[in-house]
Design a binder for these strands. Structure first.
Lengths: 210, 210
DNA sequence: TCCAACATGTAAGGTGTTACATGATTTA
DNA sequence: TAAATCATGTAACACCTTACATGTTGGA
């Protein structure tokens, strides 16, 4: 249910087309909330029928058109209300921790592969978020620049501070996940001996029934 | 796609009915992976048609029946293969950090309410996971006890160690989220002054257009 | 006899993924 | 004229949520 509010947050800065929004979702906002175009276009249509946004058909060249949306008063209210409402937290459903809880059922090699994968997954996420933090500091993000342009000078600090706050949280989470997986690798070493260097095999373990 | 592997992980310990499994999902495993009964029963039927498990109809009293499932060889292979396969990480879609990134669009009160909510949500999650850690240490969890009973003595340490590892990771994540939200509360204080104690109002902010 | 627990589902709808489909415009 | 980018979708399917639906059994 957050997709529409992510869209509203972007549209509040100024009118954009579905294509523009989709770009944001594969760049800046996409680091917090991913959505493919196949989800964005229908959602915009739905939001329009519900009166949260209004689209204006623009011509592009001879025959081309693009539909540019802006937020209505109803949309502004809906956004404000969402901001005031408590977040509904989803029930936990965590594939990585699920697998971690059953690593004794596989080989040390598979356990290590999983944990290495976890490290590199979160390293690459962290890299994205750190890059976004640098962009925020350098005011090098088109949406943020547009946003600040329509925000009173006195609120610039707030605006930037909350963006930083969000991305710092994500970086810290990534750090936590990486540290956890590294501890997992140490655990595998301790339980099953150091990784096979290809010359001799550690005692075979894992795959024991149940 | 992890639901079936969570079910297989439980069934590998010994045959269980849909009802038994559903209990586990609202207790032990449910702290890592939640699933309602309306999802479990159909999934079991589907897994049976795919040959991963086999169900045996048992009578209960005069007319009652229960269907007890056990893992087939194909199911064992599928589980082992899943354990060896890389985890597919979902694209980030994080309502809390999404909202955090736009907290300048609301009142300090609403921002504080959100952050307090985040703290208490993760505190309550953490409490669950810490309790599960205590249960693991005390061998006070029926599934773990059954599991250890069918596991060679030499593998008990491994089994317990990976369970601990998984839940420790969740506790650490909760700690991270709580610390982050508390820093957010300090940020709001710094930006908008301390919370209204009901006697005088801090300078009104937020809800600035765009 | 009533209630808690046992036991198993269906139905409707929302959300998200992947693949497919189509065409216009701009730039090299 | 070819390729990149602009622009907007549909279709099928998987997964998950919430609510509804139904009956049995064992114990107080």
């Amino acid at each position: 249910m957050s997709l529409r509010y992510a869209l509203l947050a972007l549209l509040r800065v100024g009118p954009l087309s579905g294509y523009d929004l989709q770009k944001q979702f594969s760049l800046s906002v996409g680091h917090v909330w991913h959505a493919p175009d196949s989800q964005i276009y229908p959602e915009l249509r739905k939001m329009e029928t519900e009166g949260l946004i209004e689209g204006e058909e623009q011509t592009r060249g001879q025959r081309g058109t693009r539909r540019v949306y802006h937020v209505t008063d109803a949309g502004q209210s809906a956004y404000a209300e969402w901001m005031r409402s408590p977040l509904d937290y989803q029930r936990v459903r965590d594939p990585a921790h699920l697998r971690a809880a059953y690593l004794e059922n596989t080989t040390p090699e598979a356990a290590r592969a999983f944990l290495h994968g976890h490290v590199s997954e979160w390293q690459s996420e962290r890299e994205q978020w750190e890059q976004e933090l640098r962009r925020i500091d350098a005011r090098d993000n088109p949406m943020l620049v547009r946003r600040l342009a329509v925000t009173p000078e006195a609120d610039h600090e707030r605006t930037v501070a909350f963006k930083r706050f969000a991305y710092e949280g994500l970086v810290e989470r990534a750090n936590g996940e990486i540290a956890w997986a590294r501890r997992g690798l140490e655990l595998v070493d301790r339980l099953d001996g150091p990784p096979d260097d290809g010359r001799n095999s550690p005692p075979s373990r894992g795959d024991s029934q149940a």
